[in-house]
């Protein structure tokens, strides 16, 4: 009986890297599109409340938003590759 350590290691390593990478990139995308608390709450008395939901809507813009879209595009590409793996 032979245990194929190489295949096992490969699956483990790739899974770990891809998962962490994917989640990391996606989180960056979320960060880019969500409001920074510092900006949203600047100069308001409600700064101490935990919820920023009532703060004026603004969101990130400019390079942050563009970067976020790049992150999401990268994630979409990975998902497409995944579907490709299923089909092939």
């Amino acid at each position: 009986m032979s245990i194929d350590w190489a295949a096992l290691g490969q699956v483990s390593g790739i899974s770990l890297l891809v998962t962490v990478g994917f989640v990391g990139v996606f989180t960056l995308g979320i960060l880019g599109t969500s409001r920074k608390p510092q900006q949203a709450e600047a100069g308001t008395d409600t700064a101490a409340t935990a919820s920023t939901a009532s703060a004026p809507a603004g969101g990130a813009f400019g390079p942050a938003r563009a970067g976020a879209y790049l992150c999401f595009a990268l994630c979409a590409a990975v998902v497409a590759y995944g579907i490709n793996l299923i089909v092939a």
Partner: peptide
Amino acid sequence: LTYRLARGRDPQD
């Protein structure tokens, strides 16, 4: 990782 990156952001957001 994701909690670390997103700390300081409103979870609802």
